[in-house]
Structure formats: structure tokens, C-alpha cells
Design a protein around this nucleic acid. Structure first.
Lengths: 128, 128
DNA sequence: TCAATACTTAACCCCATGGTTAAGTATCAA
DNA sequence: TTGATACTTAACCATGGGGTTAAGTATTGA
């Protein structure tokens, strides 16, 4: 079961390791997150089959979903799995947010429930 | 300059894509974060040269640093670069933390300064 | 029905990656 | 000084990843 998570992280991190794939994800995020395969491929200087392979990797990692309607395929972002990568990284976050932990403790008191994860400017005030 | 960041992300994400390398980092994080190469390699069932290669990849990505004293080499964690990976991922964070944004806003008010990024249980309350 | 469109699959290349074993280089201890 | 220790480098191997071109399969529109 921990093994499974390992494999998932392998897939996610190696999916994110390629700049073209990151660009594809970025495009899906900024555009109305449901582009056809050809629309998606257009800005890139690689062939369509190459983009297909990238899409296969991305959906293999669970980061996108495809939906076929007629002869066109809409691709939409499905970035929930990225949360797992974030979780893994969070373990190391203390190294660059040491002094923010005080604040974190405060927040856990203030807002009984949970701490947020959408900071405006995360690290700039640290200079280490 | 954006190109440079791209290359850096390539290195970081592909360094993290291998389970052995993640385990090495985890070991460096939990132990007193300065182990010798042999100590570091001991728990793994791969050869020392294989571990060496992983360490090369990790230091190539700037995630560890080596310091030679006599004939032993201490390896220490240097996870600051992971912040860049986090930053990249943060762009997508809204997809799984929609309703936490209210809380984030609250925190930004409460603690003028900054929001923390060390939550205890990040995503469970979302079910989408 | 037939051609264009939209995507997919196949077959191939090259080279990077992760592993090996074996040999090489310092350094330490006796 | 000599042998063990700690790490490094070299040489090799198999696999997989990212790219290509070419061919294949639906669908759509005329």
C-alpha cells in the first residue's frame, strides 16, 4: 500500500519532469481547461504523435482526463494527484519556512479546523 | 532566464522521480542530516556505485551537498530547491483547496505578515 | 460515397538512465 | 609501509523515453 503510493509518485514526478508536459499542463490550466488534442498540440514544435505520447504519460499519471466526442477529444486538467506530490514535498518545507512555523502554530489555534495552503508570497521574507 | 528555471525544474522533478532517490532524501531528513556515503547506502540493496550515481543526480539538482573530511564524505540535505517545485505546483493548488481559500484570506488578515505552509492534514476535507 | 479531418498506432532511432562488476585513488591504522 | 577502509571512476549492459515518419481508424461534410 505504501508501495502503491511510491509508484504513483514515480509517475507524477516523472510526468512533471518534462518541460513539454509541464507546458501542456500550464496551457490546460490557463485556457478554459478543455482543449482538443490538436488545439493543445498546435503551439508546440513537435509532431502530433509526440504530443500523444506526452498525453499518455500525463493520463497515466492521472493528471489529465480525455473525453471523446465524435472525432475530437477534449482534454481536461485533473490535477488532484499533484496534491500527493505536494504532500511529499511538504515534509521538507520546514527547511525553508523555519520561522513561519510559529505562525502556523498560531493559525492552528485561531482556526481550529485546518491550516490553509495558498500563501500569497511564500518564501521571500526568508533569507538564509 | 525562464529557460534556466525550466532546466532547474527538469532536474528537480526528475531527481524526485526515482524511489531510491526519494528514500535517500527521506533518510537524510529524518536522520541528523549528515550521513556518510556508506551509511547512506547501507539500507539499500543496490551497489555503492549505483548509490553514487543517485547522489550525483541529487547534487546535480542541488538537493544535497557533499563535504569531504579525510576519506569519508558527509552528505547533507539541501532542500531549498524543492521550494521551486512547490511553487510550480502551487499554481494548481486551487483545484484541490477551493474552499480553503476563505481560511487563507482570514489568515492574511489575522497575521498581517504571511501565511504558513505546514498544514497537518491538507486535503481530506475536499471530496470533489 | 468519398475526401478531408482528428486522432491513434506502429515501427523505428538515438541516447539517457539505472544497474552491474572491476579497477583506481586517497586516507587511516597498525 | 602496507593493508584495510571509503569513496570514485570506468566500462559495460539492458531498458525506457522522447522524437520521428508512415500507416491506420473513425467521424464529418459535401
Amino acid at each position: 500500500m505504501v508501495k502503491y503510493q511510491e509508484a504513483e509518485l514515480n509517475d507524477i514526478f516523472s510526468a512533471l519532469a518534462d518541460p513539454t508536459r509541464r507546458a501542456l499542463l500550464a496551457r490546460l490550466e490557463e485556457d478554459d481547461d478543455a482543449l482538443s488534442v490538436s488545439e493543445l498540440a498546435a503551439p508546440f514544435d513537435v509532431s502530433l504523435p509526440a504530443v500523444m505520447k506526452h498525453l499518455n504519460v500525463l493520463s497515466g499519471a492521472g493528471l489529465i482526463a480525455r473525453q471523446k466526442t465524435g472525432r475530437t477529444v477534449r482534454v481536461r486538467l485533473q490535477p488532484e494527484k499533484m496534491a500527493h506530490a505536494m504532500e511529499w514535498l511538504r515534509r521538507y518545507e520546514r527547511f525553508w519556512t523555519d520561522r513561519l512555523d510559529r505562525l502556523a502554530a498560531f493559525v492552528e489555534n485561531a482556526a481550529q479546523n485546518e491550516t490553509p495552503t495558498h500563501p500569497a508570497t511564500p518564501q521571500d521574507q526568508e533569507d538564509r
